[in-house]
């Protein structure tokens, strides 16, 4: 067998793919466990690399006990009730609300991008400004947003919108411009009006790709969300991570980071499934 079996023409078996795809996860966990155990042998009080047991306890407390800042009320007895009163649920709910509102506010960007791509006067009016706005580093606007909108929810949501909306808008604009002109002409010859063409022909065609673009920008959305929460917030996943950093609470920080990754993975997966379900005709390139 030549070395070529590892190159372009290689056809790995299902079991080989399975082993290879999980290998780095296993290696990472093993490396962490080795490092944690070595550090704990040297210093049993080490807080930088908590053991699995410490992290499990930290996560148990986060998921089933109220946050320190909350007043202790009557203790819930059932597991679901304890979870709904916990620090993890409180933080997840606060971050999810900001995330959801920000995602909903991206929809006008899609509509504006569509109109800019289709209607030449709208394009001429907005394009240069949006291109300029897209180059502004959103985080540099944070102080301005805090001054303009206060340190409440609005400034954090605006940060996400300002950071991600121009990208989504320009992506929608480009996708709109990419629709073959034959399709637009054809729709007119079938009796469609300008707005029929925009919403029943072009938007329907580009929407799966726009949806994908939003999905691929999820990380940017969460990045801006975390920046806002870390700087000015009293709840949220990033607020908790920033707070625990002061106490070197790695036993909770690491599970929180993994929890955020899991949530993001689930949102990504749900968006993929929804896209396939809504657009059965769409084949990703």
């Amino acid at each position: 067998m030549s070395a070529g079996f590892l190159l372009i023409h290689a056809k790995p078996s299902r079991s080989a793919v399975l082993v290879l795809s999980w290998f780095l996860f296993a290696a990472g966990i093993l490396a962490y466990l080795y490092a944690a155990s070595a550090r704990h042998r040297d210093n049993p009080e080490d807080r930088v690399t908590p053991t699995i047991a410490q992290m499990a306890k930290g996560m148990y407390d986060a998921a089933l006990k109220p946050a320190e800042e909350d007043e202790a009320g009557e203790e819930a007895t059932t597991l679901p009730k304890r979870f709904l009163g916990s620090m993890l649920w409180k933080d997840t709910k606060a971050s999810a609300w900001r995330f959801g509102v920000s995602m909903a506010l991206l929809f006008p960007a899609v509509i504006l991008g569509l109109h800019m791509g289709l209607f030449p006067y709208v394009g001429a009016f907005f394009l240069r400004f949006v291109l300029f706005f897209d180059k502004i580093v959103a985080l540099s606007l944070l102080p301005i947003l805090f001054i303009a909108f206060g340190i409440d929810e609005l400034s954090k949501i605006m940060l996400i919108v300002v950071g991600v909306a121009p990208t989504i808008l320009l992506d929608t604009f480009n996708l709109t411009r990419g629709v073959p002109p034959e399709q637009i002409v054809k729709a007119f010859t079938l009796g469609a009006s300008d707005f029929d063409v925009a919403y029943r022909v072009v938007l329907k065609q580009i929407f799966p790709r726009v949806f994908n673009s939003i999905r691929l920008n999820l990380k940017a959305v969460v990045l801006f969300l975390f920046a806002g929460e870390m700087i000015a917030s009293t709840d949220g996943l990033a607020y908790r991570i920033a707070l625990l950093r002061r106490h070197m609470g790695m036993d909770v920080i690491i599970p929180y980071v993994l929890w955020v990754a899991l949530l993001l993975f689930l949102v990504d997966l749900s968006m993929r499934r929804i896209n396939q379900w809504l657009h059965p005709w769409f084949r990703e390139a």
Binding site: Q183, K186, F282
Partner: peptide, 14 residues
């Protein structure tokens, strides 16, 4: 005037 081009005749989402 009806129109049939060489390609992109049909709406892919329908």
């Amino acid at each position: 005037r009806g129109y049939v081009p060489q390609k992109y005749s049909l709406f892919p989402d329908k």
